[in-house]
Design a protein around this nucleic acid. Structure first.
Length: 191
DNA sequence: TCCCGGATGCCCT
DNA sequence: GGGCATCCGGGAT
C-alpha cells in the first residue's frame, strides 16, 4: 500500500473528499504508530462556498487553504478542540477536506489514554475527538502530508456505499451536500 | 437514548 | 466583542 501523493490532493475538493473515504491516516507519536480508516469527511471550497473559512479573504488563520495541496490545515475550534483538514485544489484555488471521523486501527490503547476514555465507540467518532486521540494540535499545522513521517495517508482499496448529506455545525452553505460517510460504519459521528 | 446548556479561547470585524 | 466546521455531562424519558 502506497502513500497518497500530491497528485491525489490537487483535484476538486468534493472529489478528493469522497476519494479519501476508506483511506488510512497514520500518525507517528513518540515512536508509536497510531492509525485509522477514514469514515467521514466534509469538503470546503472558496468564493462559491459560504460555509467555508476561505469564503472571504485570505487571513492569518485560513491562508493555507489558498496554498499548495497536500498540506495540513489545523485550527482551534470552540475553545477546546483542534480540527484537521487537508488542503486540496490547485495552488491559488482555496479548498480543503475536513476529516470528521476515523475507525481506529493501530495504537488503540494509546488513543484511549490520550482521550481519557474506556469506551471505544466514542474514541474517534468526531472531528475534535479524533485529533485528541491522535495527538494532533496546532504544531502540525502546515505539515506536508506527502512528505511528513509524523502525519500522512496511505491508499486502501475497498468498496463501500457512500452516504451524502449537508455539512454539520455551520449556518451558511447548507444548500451544498458536501458531507460524505461510509454507510453503516459504527464510527461515523452521527447516524 | 435523547436533549439541552455550559465551557472554552482564538480569530475576525 | 461576537461568533464559532465541538464535546461532555446531567436530567428527563
Amino acid at each position: 500500500m502506497r502513500r497518497l501523493k500530491r497528485k491525489f490532493f490537487i483535484k476538486n475538493s468534493v472529489f478528493v473528499a469522497k476519494k479519501l473515504l476508506g483511506k488510512i491516516i497514520i500518525r507517528r507519536y513518540k515512536g508509536e504508530e497510531l492509525s485509522g480508516k477514514i469514515v467521514e469527511v466534509e469538503s470546503y471550497r472558496g468564493k462559491d462556498d459560504a460555509g467555508s473559512h476561505a469564503y472571504n479573504k485570505k487571513t492569518k488563520r485560513n491562508f493555507l487553504m489558498f496554498g499548495k495541496p497536500g498540506i495540513s490545515y489545523i485550527y482551534f475550534c470552540y475553545g477546546n478542540y483542534y480540527l484537521l483538514n487537508i488542503v486540496t485544489e490547485k495552488k491559488g484555488n482555496p479548498g480543503a477536506v475536513l476529516i470528521r471521523a476515523i475507525e481506529p486501527l493501530k495504537g488503540i490503547k494509546t488513543m484511549m489514554k490520550l482521550r481519557g476514555l474506556k469506551n471505544i465507540k466514542k474514541l474517534t467518532n468526531g472531528p475534535g475527538r479524533l485529533t485528541q486521540a491522535l495527538f494532533i494540535d496546532k504544531s502540525l499545522n502546515g505539515e506536508d502530508v506527502t512528505k511528513s513521517n509524523k502525519l500522512f495517508f496511505i491508499d486502501n482499496k475497498e468498496r463501500f456505499k457512500i452516504k451524502v448529506t449537508t455539512r454539520i455545525g455551520i449556518k451558511k452553505g447548507l444548500e451544498k451536500k458536501w458531507r460524505f460517510y461510509i454507510a453503516g460504519n459504527t464510527f461515523v459521528s452521527k447516524n
